[in-house]
Design a protein around this nucleic acid. Structure first.
Lengths: 201, 201
DNA sequence: AAGCCAAATAGACAGATGTTGAGTTTTTGG
DNA sequence: CCAAAAACTCAACATCTGTCTATTTGGCTT
């Protein structure tokens, strides 16, 4: 996906070290919140020297951030290949997108459940929302040309946060309803809200 | 609100120490994320012995949690004295509630901006949402008796997160729109969505 | 006003952090 | 295939943490 000629490709040792650390980190995060994960135990579990950790990451939060960034990059691709159009008639509509997005989170469930859970990282949530913003607002304005940009943004934030909220709930144990039900509900709420938010303007 | 007879009232020194620490903490939180606030600098800034800190709090996160709890208790009172009814006709409606809630966050702006910001605490958000849940769902079901409880919950989560999202945006610098505008928008979205979410069931 | 007792201080401790420098192993490229 | 570069290990270090003890201060009670 990147430029492959000048991509020196990371040293094989580096890749191994990083994945060892990331796997150990994931394990630990399922057991305790980030703030009580210690570099020492992380390295012990990964079988990596403590000094090596600091060769790649500033601290535990830096590691977390780098893992989030990787996820967000994947999400970017998903956003580029799918129209975000959820503002549409129920039949066609953004059902495709909604499903794609729910699918993405289901595929990366382990990490996403952690990042979106109670001990999760709001910066990750904010990252998701900001990434989808421009495209969504533009599509909304195209669909409802009389709406103002400010209104479109306000509406977007409301919907985006609501969407994330449902996602988060559906990653919990136990979820209030199966994945599909939640996605469908989200889809419906968004479309109804969009229509009337724009119309009553 | 509690039993007032056996409330021994905290020692004056304790109260002083705690407010000193909390104020210093707030200062620090405007400068850096929680995870890089050190107990040492916190105590230096507060002019309190480091040992004294540990007399009252387990660590920095414990202090944060206690401050959140205080806020959530205030919020509880607000919830009890206002009907959450946002599912209603535009005129009467929960405009009162919406304004009350936006007002609450504006009054505690400093702390809330931190807790809801990017370096904020998702547990705080979850706390808010869980506290308002039962009452909201019950009111929703009363208003739309044909809806199922599951639907009501799904709808609630979507709306609650959307609401919080808007709140958070309006606490940012600069907010996308003035407080009043956001509150009104939230109000409108919720009512339209509620009506059609329930009806098309 | 005196005395009691809880709270604050000061200092010491082991353990974790983050940094550094010296030495060893592995990968890469000429 | 060998040498240079880069990654890893190991050990040492100053700093912060969280806990403890002995001591002083200051606020409640009677």
């Amino acid at each position: 996906m990147e430029n492959r000629t000048p991509a020196p490709r990371e040293d094989q040792r580096v890749r191994l070290t990083k994945t060892l650390l990331q796997n150990a980190f994931l394990e630990l995060l399922t057991e305790k919140p980030v703030q009580s994960v210690t570099v020492k135990e992380l390295c012990q579990r990964a079988g990596v020297n403590r000094g090596t950790f600091y060769l790649h990451y500033k601290d535990v939060y830096d590691l977390l951030e780098k893992m989030e960034d990787a996820l967000l990059r994947d999400l970017d691709e998903l956003l580029q290949s799918n129209p975000v159009i959820v503002y549409n008639t129920p039949e066609e509509a953004g059902a495709g997108f909604t499903n794609a997005i729910f699918g993405f989170f289901e595929k990366n469930r382990e990490m996403c459940a952690i990042l979106l859970g109670d001990n999760g990282d709001k910066k990750f949530v904010a990252g998701i929302i900001e990434r989808a913003k421009e495209k969504s607002v533009r599509e909304y304005l195209a669909f409802y040309p009389t709406a103002s940009r400010q209104d479109a943004e306000i509406f977007y934030y409301f919907i985006a946060w609501g969407f994330i909220g449902l996602l988060q709930q559906s990653l919990q144990n136990p979820p209030p309803a199966p994945f599909g039900t939640m996605a469908a509900a989200a889809q419906r709420i968004i479309m109804e809200a969009a229509r009337f938010f724009a119309v009553t303007d």
